[in-house]
Design a protein around this nucleic acid. Structure first.
Lengths: 144, 144
DNA sequence: TCATCGCTCATACGAAAGTATGAATTAACA
DNA sequence: TGTTAATTCATACTTTCGTATGAGCGATGA
């Protein structure tokens, strides 16, 4: 969810800034030693870094190879966005994962996929994938 | 659904037989002319034929091409039955359709697919398809 | 004969996919 | 400027998928 992800990151950044400012004021008031301030800031940023690192690795390990699209094989007049969605569907991602990748909401991806199925005259995700592969729209094995 | 389909066909056949018998009795009682009896029987069977024909065509048009399996690429030690299921999954069929094709129940196919995902270390149908295609287990384009 | 494996089936539950409907925004275009 | 297409989003609903768990059965092999 783009909103959720943005919200989380926003909150983290906001928290970090607040903590830093609080520390600066305390420092200016002479109530805190510089070492302590730096230490706290270090811990906050370390935590932030760990969190982002974990997220990164988790996303990494989850990622499949993404299929390539053929340039001259759009038999169904799919829009650019629909092609992107189809490509990610064929690569094994859920609607939610596709939404995250494209920074849009889940309903948006659902709308796109429904439109794709209509244009391709199929009823299911797996049929769309099969049809796209068979037609050559999606390239499963790059031929060099 | 095998049960539902069987039920429907059973009901149709039963109805046809009942109608025929009713006609025969009426005929025996001399209340109906032979031509009328034959006519009614004809209409009943014509309707039955039309219904079955429509069903046939609809099923026909719904059928996808079925992918081929590689003979020497079973990296995950999938059982013969699991290979069949995977093949049909990749070809775009629902679990219900696969169950119908293999003359087993829906829960059976669900069990098979779950086992397939575990053996292949994936979480979803589309991932299993992608992985199987990439590995060469499933042949999307027959090379001659 | 006992253990294992493959296959089958069932029920119940939760997650993901898909449909329908309506709507707002933006960009291209006549 | 009005129209159209593409994109986005939401809500509500149905269908399909997937997991967990437990069980029965036949074949195979130690």
């Amino acid at each position: 969810m783009p909103k959720k992800a943005l919200l989380i990151y926003g909150l983290i950044c906001a928290t970090a800034i607040v903590v830093l400012n609080a520390g600066k004021f305390t420092l200016a008031a002479g109530l805190l030693q510089l070492e302590v301030y730096i230490g706290i800031a270090g811990i906050v940023f370390l935590a932030l870094g760990i969190y982002m690192g974990v997220q990164w690795v988790q996303n990494k390990s989850k990622q499949n190879d993404v299929y390539q699209l053929s340039n001259n094989n759009n038999s169904w007049q799919l829009s650019p966005r629909e092609l992107e969605v189809l490509q990610l569907m064929a690569s094994g991602f859920t609607n939610q994962e596709i939404a995250d990748k494209l920074f849009v909401s889940l309903p948006t991806i659902k709308t796109h996929s429904s439109n794709i199925y209509q244009k391709m005259n199929v009823k299911r995700r797996t049929q769309a994938i099969q049809t796209a592969i068979q037609s050559g729209l999606i390239l499963t094995h790059t031929k060099d």
